[in-house]
Amino acid sequence: MIEISNLTFGYSKNQLLFKDLNLRLSKGHIYGLLGKNGAGKSTLLRNIAGLLHPREGHCKVNGLSADSRTPAFLQELFFIPEELYLPDVTVSGFVKSTAHFYPKFDEAAFYKVLSDFDVPEISKIKHLSYGQQKKIMIAFGLATNTSLLIMDEPTNGLDIPSKVQFRKAIAAALNEDRCIIISTHQVRDLDSLIDVVLVLDQQEIVLYKSIDELQEMAISRGEASAKLDMEVLFNSAISGHK
């Protein structure tokens, strides 16, 4: 699904963010990309999406190079950035003008998620709050049914009930043909949602394990609690106590 080989990237030649990074992500999983501010989460996601070009190495999604940003590549990838932009049209106007670029777009699913999020359909997008605009983008991203959905800090701006709704919607949207990557520094927002944890620290992947593996490791160490605390896990990963 996603193949990152020997990725070397830096905004300047002298200050590299990634050096020979290798990573493979497969379909049917929700990956949680965790890391402190400035760890390089957004940069990694933008490399995967083809918004940044590596100095060396390559990123491929479904065998297609991210660099090229061809329509075949783009119609199988939806990227929800932290700071989003939606045009000055109504919700239905946005769907009419944009949905047809995604061949597997499910309009009914879009309005269903939107209704679960309590976002009024008839509103002009610009009149809605940041949180509501984010919900439209999340609903749209889920409805595109692209094989890769990337979300950068998607829970920023969402209230607590919406975060619960967000987790439900994401869990329902996952299938065997889809890979979802969620990047956040608010690790608790991903509790009971992700099935693979990736921790990025000081430009390196310091942890890449499934939740099941982590639970087994915890049990083998004699920690009785069956439920992993994402915040504890994250803190121990970045402090080197894996």
Binding site: A49, G50, L51, R69, T70, P71, L74, Q75, L77, F78, F79, P81, E83, L84, Y85, L86, T98, F101, Y102
Partner: peptide
Amino acid sequence: GSQSKSISFLMLPASN
């Protein structure tokens, strides 16, 4: 001109 608009523009499934 803006990061958020750029992403929306560049990620739209159409060729360059």
